[in-house]
Design a protein around this nucleic acid. Structure first.
Length: 104
DNA sequence: ATTATGACGGTTC
DNA sequence: AGAACCGCCATAA
């Protein structure tokens, strides 16, 4: 898997399309690319996600990656992403914040 | 080649 | 709600 791999470019392309305050799940992105390889999306983010709004890519649980949940929270507050603050940390309101690149 | 692991997801219990 | 399982595919050992 190198940066030139089409899958990588497509993933990064989709992520860049996500508007501020909105989010997309790993599986969602994989689905858009006609795949179910949500893990590959995660891998791509881990390797090449440094220069895209990675915090807008979350898990289907409505929580950002465990490693960066604190980091992501700052961005969410900054962008006004719909959050559902609960006792055990917080989670994104997927019902409202979920986004799809269909309308482009 | 085989096994384990990972910024994951969905189903089942 | 939480845990166990299986599916997915690239990488590392």
């Amino acid at each position: 898997m190198n940066p030139d791999h089409p899958f990588v470019e497509q993933v990064l392309g989709v992520v860049e399309e996500i508007p501020a305050g909105r989010v997309m799940t790993y599986g969602g992105i994989a689905a858009v690319l006609g795949s179910r390889a949500s893990r590959q999306v995660g891998q791509v983010m881990a390797r090449y996600g440094s220069d895209v709004p990675w915090w807008r890519v979350i898990r289907s649980d409505g929580r950002p990656p465990e490693c960066h949940e604190g980091r992501a929270l700052e961005h969410y507050r900054e962008e006004g992403t719909p959050l559902r603050t609960a006792d055990a940390g917080y989670r994104i309101d997927l019902r409202v914040a979920a986004w799809s690149p269909h309308a482009l």
